[in-house]
Amino acid sequence: MKRILACFKVTDDFDSLMPAEWENLGTGAPDTSYVKRLLGCFDEAALENALLFGDALRALGEEVELTALTLDPGYSDHIVKNLPAIGFARVVCLESGADLRFAPEETARLLSEFIKENGPYDAVFAGQQAPPYNSGLVPYFLAARLGLHCLANVRVLAPEGGGVTVLQEADGGGTLRRRAELPLLFVVGNAERSYLRVPTLREKLATKGFAPERRAAEAGAPALAPCALERESVERSCEMIEGGTAEEQARALYDAYLKEALS
């Protein structure tokens, strides 16, 4: 039996906030009560690549158990309810209620406590970063706490001979092909398969009535919290180029701006 765990974060759609929400926050959080809750894009890829890894292991005749783990997901029923339908046998929500926006160390500590208590796992997946902090630190702190080797910037992975072969993105766009032995923590970056699969109606019906496990978690203070959050938006008085057709607009833009810029 191979045991796989994927960590994920449900976050707010910060790009949908009204501009006024960003003003005069001090170190507080903006009002996000009216925007969508969504998966961090790298965490979505981490969940999907955990599933793909499970699929590949099953194709080799292995039994696989998949767990999805999150911390303080807030309103997330629309995301969490689909996870069992697409293959996660266990979905666990740790709930601290604490302000962990800028606390990668504490986030990793809380996740690691669950993983240690319920492990060992052969493969742990985490997305490379998630808002609002996007520090990119949680996977590395988690690997350190779990004593796992860590493969970062994972694009593709596949089981091979009891271990795994991984394609990793290198600085500057190159690719590294690496073999390694499990157990490992995979930091999923710009993955080739980055969208989470959608359950079929049959899969949804088969897991109807599912409720995630909810566990209390006690968080401490962040190691380094910001002393200020400032809005530094660039606002320009955009000159709109007129014209009845694309050709007229192109000509007007060329005459007013591009001719000089290209000379």
């Binding site: 606002e235 320009r236 000159e239 050709e247 192109a250 060329y254």
Partner: peptide, 21 residues
């Protein structure tokens, strides 16, 4: 809001016109 100049147009249609020009 960020731009010095803006064009309200379909991106591909505008790009074709600008290429021609």
């Amino acid at each position: 809001r960020l731009c010095h100049a803006g064009v309200v147009a379909d991106a591909a249609e505008f790009a074709r016109a600008l290429c021609d020009l």
